[in-house]
Write a protein that binds this DNA or RNA. Sequence first.
DNA 1: CTCCTTTTTAAAGTATACCTTAATAATTAT
DNA 2: ATAATTATTAAGGTATACTTTAAAAAGGAG
Lengths: 211, 211
Amino acid sequence: MTNNREDYLKIIYKLSQKNKVVNSSNIAKALNVTPTSSSEMLKKLRNEGLVNQDKNITLTDKGLEMTQDILTKHRLWETFLIQYLGFSWSEVDEQAELLEHATSDKLKERLNEFLNFPKHCPHGSIIFENTKNEIDTTKTALDLEVGDSAKLIKVSQDKDLLLYLDSINLKLNDDFVVVNKNNFDGSLSIKVNGEIKELSFKALKELVILT
Amino acid sequence: MTNNREDYLKIIYKLSQKNKVVNSSNIAKALNVTPTSSSEMLKKLRNEGLVNQDKNITLTDKGLEMTQDILTKHRLWETFLIQYLGFSWSEVDEQAELLEHATSDKLKERLNEFLNFPKHCPHGSIIFENTKNEIDTTKTALDLEVGDSAKLIKVSQDKDLLLYLDSINLKLNDDFVVVNKNNFDGSLSIKVNGEIKELSFKALKELVILT
DNA sequence: CTCCTTTTTAAAGTATACCTTAATAATTAT
DNA sequence: ATAATTATTAAGGTATACTTTAAAAAGGAG
C-alpha cells in the first residue's frame, strides 16, 4: 500500500460522500493529475480488489476498510494538531495529510487513547472506530464551498448556538447559498432570502445540512 | 529533498559520529542497499552540495544543517512517543523514522514547544536546537575499568540492542558500578540498584556513558 | 612493484507514478 | 441519427531509486 493508493481511496470515498459522479475524470480533477494517470491507477486498484468499476467507481469492502483506517489516522492527527499544538483550522489538513501515511496501527491506537477516543475530528467528521453506530453521511456546513447551496436540516442542541442562530435569524429548513469562504478563520458568508449572514467556523460544524 | 536523501544524510552523520570510515560501501551496508546504489546516490548529493567526497565522505555545512534538522524531528517524535504514548524503547525508533519525514518546520517547532524544549531524546541523544553548546559525542562503556562508576546516558538506535536492554531491564540514566571485567571476551559485569547484570563486549561500544 | 582484494563507475534493466499525444468509446445535444 | 463533447485506453516517455553484471580504479600485502 503506497501513499498514492491511499490518496486515491480517500478521494473516491469523499466524492461519493458528496454524491458526485465517481469516475476517472473527477478523480483526476480532485487529485490534480491527468485523467490518463488516474485511469491507470484505478486499473491497479481494481486488480488489487480495492475498487469496483461499473458506471460509478465504488470501494469494495476491503477498500472501504482501508479508507476508513486512513481517514481515522488523518482525523486523529487533526485533533492532536489543533488541541495540543495550537494549529489553526486552515493549516491542519495539509500537515495531517503527511502524517496519516506515516502512522502505524499501533501509533493510531495509542494516539486515539491519548486523545481519549474522540468521536469527531475538529472539522466535525466522525472518527469511525469511536462511533460504531454513526454513519459518515451527515454533512455539516463545514463541507460547503463558495457557490454551494444547501438547506439547514439539523443543529446540535447547544443553548448558546441556538441563541446565536436566533440572533442572526437563521432557522431550520432555511435554504441558502455560500457567497464567500474566509480561509483565515474558516467562517462562511451565506445568503438567505436575499440577506447576507456570517457563520463563524465554530458554528459551522454544528449545522447539519442537505445539499 | 526526498526521504531517501534524508536517510543518506543521517547515515553519513551517524557513521562519522562512530568514527567509522564513511565511504560508499559502509553506507551501502548500513542502508542495506548495494554499493552501486549508494555510490550513485552520493554522486547526486555531491552535485547538490550536501556532501564532500575526498577519502572520507563528509557533510557540507548545508548538509549538516539539514541532517541536524532531520535528527531533531526524529528525536522530538521519540520523546513524544515514549513520554505521551507509552511506546517502549525498542519500538520507538522505527515509528519516529516514518514521522520525521512527514514533519514540517512548523510542526517541529510546535512539537518542540509542546514537549517543553527537551535537551535530549529518550535515547540520550542531544536535540540540537535546544542544546546550543553541547557536542554530540561522549565516552562509551568500552572505556570502563573495574571499580568505575558511570551513568548510562545514551544508546545507539539498534533494534536488537534495544530489545536486549529491555530484556535485562537496563534503562537510560541508570547509575552503575563495574564489578568485573572479563578479559577473555571483554564483557563487563555491572551492578545496578544492587543487581548484577552482564554486558557483552558487543553491547559496550553502543552504550554512551557519563563518568 | 606486482598481485589481490576492495571500491567505484559504467551499462542496462526493474518498478512506481507520473506525463503527453493520439485514438477509440461513450455520452449528450441538436 | 449525426455531430460535438467528454471519457477512456493505448503507446511511448520522464524521473526516482533501486537492481545486476561487468569493467576500471584504488589500496594493501608480500
